[in-house]
Design a protein around this nucleic acid. Structure first.
Lengths: 247, 247
DNA sequence: AACAATTGAGAGCACTGCTCTTGACTTTGC
DNA sequence: GCAAAGTCAAGAGCAGTGCTCTCAATTGTT
């Protein structure tokens, strides 16, 4: 079944078909340029050259550079989301920690394979470009939804250690009212059953996961600091699973 | 005491003084452009205009755009390092958790105040630009050195909870030989006394800290997901302190 | 076949990084 | 004191960018 997007209905006339095909070609070429040269070096003229067409012709199909960036953003979010879903789906539903590991490894694998596209999604924002929320929010939230779904399923199955005291030796980290309010609206929006403490820890696990991946992909670990980055990542995953309270 | 860099000796002749002053002006203007428009939009021509000089004249003082970027990188690392050192120094030496909190808050404070410069240091790499390691490694490692120094001092003072089982309910995260090798060379290079388990957790805390800050600064939390970002960060700091084994 | 919508090409504007030459100025060495 | 050496700003120019506009040709529809 072709994933027909609501915003772009299936093309009926041959013209619409050709147009959709050209846009798809532009996105494909843009993706290649993005992967090789990075987001800031993405050039509509270069894409036009590869397409065998003069630069102004591309503007018939794509409003401007920013829109191409948006298309590539959605494209990348979609691919990452698909890979994560597939990886998580390959693990038994009841193996919550296994699903968490699968998610983490899938994200890292894609990020290492596609550093420039990962940078577009999770790196510093491209100057002068603001992603239109109405088009990117949906695709962009798939991974965090998937992660939270794992935590929530584990919680409902009673497979989450509650006592946060097992993490911090001192008293459990307190959840002040302002944070509790944020967590409440998140819980309602995502339809989760997680209590504040676990939810807040989930947010930390989320940012920590991407922090570890970003450090590796963006070369923030020095040149030769860590030779065994995959082993380091596995270790981090283990600790993060512990923070989330997964067995 | 003026921080005289080894690579740039103190100017003797009036010419050298004038030259150093011009370069300082260029860096200052570049810093302003960087803060306002971002790294990728940093333009030597725009800096030249602000300097009241034709573009080619700037090339007398700065080899090319990349070198200006390097100067701004060092400049930013220096400012961040200074602020972190000052913040940490304001807390009693024996208050290890307090020093850790101070470090985290200082980094976040600077990052929120200087998002574009933070992005230059810890965001996605600028396409086509590679920071020269011999000039940036030193300034770039100050924060992690400072962080590790806190952990190490806490360890030597016996203020670090050893048993990692308190974090992950299961067996303590295992350190495979390849990772152990990396950790050994890090321990030797930094002259630390931390055992593998704590050191590996320290690395996770390090990346997690910057992951949380990057998510906030780069707008990866959705628009209205967290209203109380400072409270969320404080919570994360608490949990991270627990992971590091600090009281 | 005729019409109209769509498309591609080309010119052009304003911007970028960067190089090279030219003329003026300043410092230095004799 | 004066000429040589060194330094500097300016300007022209090249190749690239995003983007707009006009014009002619193609193409799908009626």
């Amino acid at each position: 079944m072709p994933a027909t997007d609501a915003a772009t209905p299936a093309p009926r006339t041959p013209r619409e078909r050709a147009r959709a095909q050209t846009i798809a070609d532009i996105v494909r070429l843009g993706r290649e340029h993005l992967a090789v040269h990075g987001a800031a070096a993405l050039s509509l003229r270069a894409v036009a050259r590869d397409l065998g067409v003069v630069s102004s012709a591309v503007y018939r199909y794509v409003q401007n550079r920013d829109e191409l960036l948006t298309l590539l953003l959605i494209d990348a979010y979609g691919e990452l989301g698909d890979e994560v879903d597939a990886a998580v789906g390959r693990v038994a539903e009841a193996d919550f920690a296994g699903r968490f590991y699968a998610l983490g490894r899938a994200v890292r694998g894609w990020a290492v394979r596609e550093p420039a596209r990962y940078a577009l999604l999770f790196g510093s924002p491209v100057p002068g470009y603001r992603a239109p929320a109405e088009r990117t929010t949906g695709p962009g939230t798939r991974v965090i939804y998937s992660l939270m779904a794992i935590f929530d399923a584990a919680w409902r199955a009673g497979a989450v250690r509650v006592e946060p005291a097992s993490v911090a030796a001192g008293p459990p980290a307190v959840i002040p009212p302002p944070l509790a309010r944020d967590l409440t609206s998140i819980r309602e929006e995502l339809g989760l059953g997680l209590p504040d403490g676990i939810l807040a820890r989930g947010a930390l696990v989320w940012t920590s996961l991407f922090g570890a991946i970003s450090f590796e992909v963006f070369g923030q670990y020095g040149e030769n600091t860590f030779a065994a980055k995959d082993v380091l990542f596995e270790h981090h995953l283990q600790v993060l699973a512990g923070i989330a309270g997964l067995e």
